[in-house]
């Protein structure tokens, strides 16, 4: 299925979606965080789309907003889509988990929580994955400070 055909299907689900292919080999869709779980569920369950494989979850700090980028693929149909979701609450950012849709997201979301401090609602086991449990702060955020270890340039 071409990117245009995917866009035609997905754009009918909600009015708050932004599509772009600029600077990317994939079709990118940015959606509001309230609709993340319902849209992801539809992406997987719609038979023509059949996005059954979540192959990458990336935490992101855009400076103002924090967010997550999901790379999806359909193994049978060989097409891809990139889902972006942003959250401008830096104090207590929360997103809905997608690990009930793609269970691989469970560990990826733990990693995003570890490094960006984004909390995932309904996640079964959200805790530090790589860093020590008593680590202070979230080191991959742009405003992270560690005067002992970091040389800032």
């Amino acid at each position: 299925m071409t990117n245009q055909e995917i866009q035609n299907i997905v754009s009918g689900w909600s009015e708050n979606l932004e599509f772009t292919e600029e600077g990317s080999q994939f079709l990118n869709v940015t959606l509001p965080k309230e609709e993340l779980h319902s849209i992801c569920e539809k992406l997987k369950e719609t038979p023509e789309l059949d996005f059954d494989y979540l192959f990458c979850v990336t935490g992101m700090d855009w400076g103002k907003e924090l967010g997550v980028i999901y790379h999806l693929e359909s193994i049978d149909k060989k097409h891809n889509i990139v889902v972006k979701v942003k959250n401008d609450d830096r104090e207590n950012p929360t997103l809905d988990t997608v690990c009930d849709i793609w269970s691989t997201a469970e560990f990826h979301e733990m990693e995003v929580y570890d490094f960006f401090g984004i909390k995932f609602n309904n996640h079964p086991n959200l805790k530090r994955l790589f860093l020590t449990p008593d680590w202070d702060g979230y080191p991959l955020r742009k405003d992270y400070v560690d005067e002992a270890n970091m040389v800032i340039k």
């Binding site: 080191p139 992270y144 560690d146 270890n149 970091m150 040389v151 800032i152 340039k153």
Partner: peptide
């Protein structure tokens, strides 16, 4: 990793 790294020994 000299600059801006929280995890690497210099």
């Amino acid at each position: 990793f000299f600059y801006n790294s929280y995890s690497v020994i210099k």
